[in-house]
Design a protein around this nucleic acid. Structure first.
Length: 340
DNA sequence: AATGCACTCAACCGCACCCGT
DNA sequence: AACGGGTGCGGTTGAGTGCAT
């Protein structure tokens, strides 16, 4: 299927339309209709391609076009339809009389998208954003898993797990680069540390810089302990009998998935974090975790962690662990039941 | 007043689909 | 079934404009 000839061929005019050209186009369509767009320019005496004429007519010259600012109702309609239809601008336009798909698309890109982003909503999914800050806990958990793998290689022979941990370790390094870059560019902005993301940054730095706790290094018997737990140091750790079963069974491949559901728990606002068995696509309830959302307001404990170098003051937690910042997986049967 | 920057939106580009031959 | 013309659609571009410095 060859491409149709367009404006760049045959020396046809491109660019903005003059009032004379508009007049010719309107006059011709009023008298004869547009018929074949390809033939129209010649019949109307225009040195334009048919495509350009069609666009000019449908997006600008058509008499039923409503111009001016979008009303609140129209805005709500666009938001709703976009959440259902996605970037189907022509389909959305059919629900907004007088508005063109191009106009709606521009309005979306210049106003609504930014508005949603500012509200912390992903403009594509219309869900709370799951950007790097909310996916961070997974990266941290995996990245630290890599440390554990390195320190206790005899424990694991699952190549898939090792690869994932390696990937997460790379992501950790990249994220640290991002944070450093971000910090360098916002040092003059005091708000950067008081905003939610600023807090997330500090917490992220704390977490990312945390070494593997001594008790994990010394006694890495994962499945029967609470060493993998998530939450701040003051969270109550609940044991789970089937902790990380996949880590022990190299025959069971798995992948990680972040749930968009935010849960309010005793440890604050959390995002659920699920390990999936590959193939059957079923959620393995025994491997669903909740991770604290990095955007939650800091508790007194968390605020006290704002100095990444201050490790000793909290070293009494976790049975003398080297760092209180070790991201711990947090299990709760009732919560996991809710997730499933 | 001059310059730079951010924003808007009309217009273009290129791909995909439909339909007639 | 294959081909090609015509059209629709979504993404991108760049000129115009207004505002800040």
């Amino acid at each position: 299927m060859g491409r149709s000839a367009c404006c760049d061929e045959n020396g046809l005019k491109k660019g903005p339309w003059t009032p004379e050209e508009d007049q010719k186009l309107v006059h011709h369509i009023k008298r004869h209709g547009h018929g074949s767009w390809r033939a129209l320019p010649r019949l109307a005496g225009l040195n334009r391609c048919g495509k350009s004429c069609r666009l000019r007519w449908t997006n600008y010259l058509r008499p039923d076009i409503k111009r001016g600012k979008f009303s609140q109702d129209e805005e709500q309609t666009i938001l709703h339809l976009h959440s259902v239809l996605g970037n189907k601008w022509s389909a959305i336009a059919t629900h907004l009389p007088g508005r063109t798909d191009n106009e709606i698309k521009n309005f979306w890109n210049t106003h609504l998208k930014k508005k949603l982003i500012q509200m912390g909503i992903d403009p594509m999914t219309h869900q709370p954003r799951t950007d790097i800050f909310t996916s961070l806990p997974q990266l941290i958990a995996l990245a630290n898993l890599k440390d554990l793998l390195e320190n206790s290689p005899h424990l694991f022979d699952d190549q898939a797990l090792i690869l994932q941990a390696e990937a997460a370790h790379l992501a950790k390094l990249q994220y640290m680069q991002l944070l450093l870059h971000s910090a360098a560019s916002t040092t003059t902005n005091d708000d950067s540390l008081s905003s939610p993301n600023g807090i997330a940054d500090m917490e992220a730095l704390n977490l990312l810089s945390s070494p593997v706790p001594a008790h994990v290094k010394e006694n890495p018997v994962i499945p029967n302990s609470s060493q993998f737990s998530v939450g701040n140091a003051s969270s109550q750790q609940l044991h789970h009998p089937t902790l990380l079963p996949h880590l022990l069974d190299p025959q069971v491949p798995f992948s990680f998935q972040t749930s968009l559901n935010n849960e309010n728990t005793e440890m604050g606002n959390c995002s659920s974090f699920t390990m999936l068995s590959q193939g059957d696509n079923q959620i393995d309830n025994s491997s669903s975790w909740l991770l604290p959302s990095p955007t939650i307001p800091p508790t007194a404990t968390e605020t006290s962690l704002s100095n990444p170098g201050d490790v000793s003051s909290n070293s009494s937690n976790n049975n003398g662990a080297a760092s209180p910042y070790w991201p711990e997986l947090y299990f709760d049967d009732s919560i996991m039941h809710e997730i499933s």
